[in-house]
Simulated assay, not measured.
Amino acid sequence: MAMFKKAEDKYNNLMSEKDIIENDKSKIKKVIKELDEKKETLNLTWVKVNNDFRSISSTVLPDMMAKLEPPQGCSFLDGLEVWVAFGGVWKLSLSELSGGQRSLEVYIC
């Protein structure tokens, strides 16, 4: 009888732990779904801002192009870099811009 009681207690403990794990699993799935939705919203926002940024830069100076791009080999979730081109030549760094070009870029940003 003592072995049966022990087995029953162990079973009840395991069932309780199973319920806790299943509850935690559903919470994790819910958080993952919310994060996926936020990631999609962030992606749509980046695309919209990037399009507006390009439009504004070409309006301010027709010979200039600008865009927001993730670093090479990364996704937009890792961050974005400002890329600027004058006369079709993309600058690798904003420090390559002349003083006038930099002041114009600061105005746009």
Rank of each mutant, 00 (worst) to 15 (best):
M1C: 04
M1E: 10
A2V: 08
A2W: 03
F4I: 07
A7M: 08
A7N: 08
N12S: 05
N13W: 03
N13G: 06
L14T: 02
L14G: 03
M15F: 04
S16I: 01
S16W: 04
E17M: 12
D19G: 10
D19Y: 04
I20A: 10
I21E: 11
E22M: 13
E22V: 03
D24T: 12
D24M: 14
D24F: 10
D24C: 11
S26I: 10
K27I: 04
K27Q: 08
I28E: 09
I28V: 15
I28G: 07
K29A: 07
K30W: 03
K30Y: 07
K30P: 04
K30Q: 15
V31N: 11
V31Y: 13
V31T: 14
I32Y: 01
K33S: 15
K33Y: 05
E34G: 04
E34Y: 10
E34P: 01
E37S: 14
K38T: 13
K38S: 15
K39P: 05
E40P: 00
T41P: 03
L42C: 06
N43W: 06
N43D: 13
T45E: 09
T45G: 03
W46R: 12
V47E: 15
V47S: 06
K48P: 00
V49K: 04
N50A: 07
N50R: 12
N50G: 05
N50D: 15
N50K: 12
D52C: 05
R54I: 11
I56P: 00
I56F: 02
L61W: 05
P62F: 02
D63S: 13
D63R: 09
M64T: 10
M64I: 11
M64L: 15
M65P: 00
A66K: 01
K67R: 13
K67C: 01
L68Q: 00
L68M: 01
E69H: 08
P70I: 12
P70M: 09
P71L: 06
P71M: 04
P71H: 05
Q72N: 09
Q72V: 14
G73Y: 11
F76P: 01
F76R: 14
F76D: 01
L77K: 15
L77I: 08
L77R: 14
G79P: 04
L80C: 04
E81F: 03
V82S: 00
V82E: 00
V82L: 00
W83D: 02
V84R: 03
A85V: 11
A85S: 15
A85F: 13
F86G: 02
F86I: 12
F86M: 10
F86R: 12
F86P: 00
G88R: 02
V89D: 09
V89K: 15
W90R: 01
W90A: 01
K91N: 08
L92V: 04
L94W: 01
L94I: 08
L94Y: 02
E96Y: 08
L97T: 08
L97I: 05
L97E: 10
S98C: 05
S98M: 06
Q101G: 04
Q101H: 03
S103F: 06
E105W: 07
V106M: 13
Y107P: 07
Y107T: 14
Y107I: 13
I108C: 14
C109L: 14
C109F: 11
